[in-house]
Design a protein around this nucleic acid. Structure first.
Lengths: 178, 178
DNA sequence: TCCAACTATGCAACCAGTTGCAGCACTTTA
DNA sequence: TAAAGTGCTGCAACTGGTTGCATAGTTGGA
């Protein structure tokens, strides 16, 4: 049930509507935890039923159905409880490795272009992360604890992408030789 | 539908029963694509219905229900078709980053021990990969194309773990300071 | 000889996440 | 002012993966 807790965290940072959450998720937390708007609405419903959050019609929303959610004390408590629990490592799960292995078994299937494409996709993500880093974590700004942690999280993404880029470079070589 | 294709690859390497596949999956391909025995049996059923594989009672099985599956030409074709398709990059999805962010928002929640635990888990995986590497890819053995690719896949795992270990080292520092 | 552990397969229920679609209000533009 | 676009919410159906349980033969030890 990480989605609920990701939403709690996001809502603590700033009360928002489901729609806004869906868009904010595309950045920040969303780099490590994705969700569609469907999932988010459904989960917000459950969380309100559980008494973790409270919603009211958005004051700026006119006659639209927009609702703003904010975290109740019991939601905060729940997040605290959950955050201290041990969590399993994420599983490494990559379709492309299956394809590579199929290529090893069946003989050359022409995966080189796909290899290059994937390398480029990682480069793009890296560029995006780097842009965020440059914008939000300039070296001259005073690093609070919160900022240091946010930066740390971002760096996980950066290193992850760099790591894959290096691996794809080697992969291009290996597949290119044969 | 990667599971089906992972199974096809595995069965091409060696015809086996569902049970054997489940165990072989814990090694090799399973480092990048996990599946429980339930999933495997269900999928084998579908694949046989689709005409990709054929099963017969295992000759060495006595009165047990053990069945051995092997890949039919149409299965091989399907694998070839599928392997050449472009695949999406795997999404980075890590609960723990959500917890870290909750810690940043709520204030210190004592995540340091968990950080160290996770680092150790990555070390263990790394050791396991390294052991496989030492056993299966000794530098003196002649590298065929197939072996080179298998080694490449393994190295993806190795680098991945090393990368996370380095990141957790930094994380311990950042969280330790405050 | 009986029990426990292991090999081997499978059903049923469940949960999280995905996809397709639809409804309604407001905004822009032709 | 009608049409198209976008903000915002939501239902329904589906898929892939997980969990718990059941069954049945085989093997090895007390």
């Amino acid at each position: 049930m990480s989605l609920a807790h990701a939403l709690l965290t996001s809502l603590l940072e700033q009360p928002s509507s489901g729609y806004d959450l869906a868009r904010r998720f595309d950045k920040s937390i969303g780099h490590f935890w994705q969700a569609t708007h469907q999932q988010i609405y459904r989960e917000l419903g459950r969380m309100e039923k559980a008494g973790w959050i409270l919603s009211e019609p958005d004051p700026d929303a006119g006659r639209t159905r927009k609702r703003t959610y904010c975290v109740l004390p019991s939601g905060r408590q729940e997040l605290e409880r959950w955050a201290a629990e041990p969590a399993p490592l994420p599983e490494l799960r990559d379709e492309f490795m299956v394809r590579l292995r199929a290529d090893a078994t069946l003989g050359p299937l022409g995966l080189l272009p796909e290899l290059r494409r994937r390398r480029e996709l990682h480069c793009e993500k890296l560029r995006a992360y780097r842009a965020i880093e440059a914008r939000d974590f300039a070296p001259e700004t005073a690093p609070t604890r919160k900022r240091r942690i946010h930066h740390l999280i971002l760096k996980a993404g950066i290193q992850y992408e760099e790591n894959w880029i290096a691996w794809y470079d080697e992969a291009v070589q290996v597949l290119g030789e044969s």
